[in-house]
Amino acid sequence: MAAPIIKVDAISKSFGAFKVLDGLSMQVMPGEKLALIGPSGSGKTTILRILMTLERIDGGHIEVEGEQLYHMEREGSLVPASERHLARMRQKIGMVFQLFNLFPHKCVLDNITLAPMLTKGTPRAAAEKRAMELLDMVGLADKAKAMPAQLSGGQKQRVAIARALALSPKIMLFDEVTSALDPELVGEVLNVMRKLAAETDMTMLLVTHEMGFAHDFADRVLFFDRGKIVEEGKPDDIFRHPKQERTQSFLKKIIAAGHRV
């Protein structure tokens, strides 16, 4: 069996007195598509943010591709990672945000080419060629020169996906990427993600409230509650035959709220 690409070991994280993650452990295999579901405040978004180094951990260890994320080995012992180490580790990971976080002062093309040119030294011509390929993939080749403010939410999110892909990360994190969209725009973003899942062997972690999509998309579903993984398994098992009482009541509430499973 191959080695996991992400190994989370007994992570804890608090915001003030609120313990968001409480000794969380999980493993992700290369190429795996993982859906993280659970009530808000359960810690599912926090673990994505921690993997992207947007939040620091209070305790525990994370390994990405066999290397410590927040620690470095020095003379046989683990010390906190330097900014340089973090920057190197971040190359492996990309993230798409709920609110897109596009750069409003740059056109679509520049949004995508900025990071490859700055962080990898990619020449402009090559970066633009790659950006156009990605825009083509997300169906927005005609919007290359548009400003973000001219795009719909769904288009913005597809640009954000292209922007993250431009750095060719091995792991992609999707943090509620359709939650801020009007219902009729959700489909176009999900389609891009489906395509991505089918055409690449990228490892994908997805925090979502779209249970139907999670069911079709994921190889494995993790149900989070109060900073812990309460139940995990194949989508069919989790959605059709949840074993834990908390999973059952969460899914019941979600279905009652009108979400399709």
Binding site: T53, L54, R90
Partner: peptide
Amino acid sequence: EACTALNL
């Protein structure tokens, strides 16, 4: 955060 995620 977008800057961090893009490793700038």
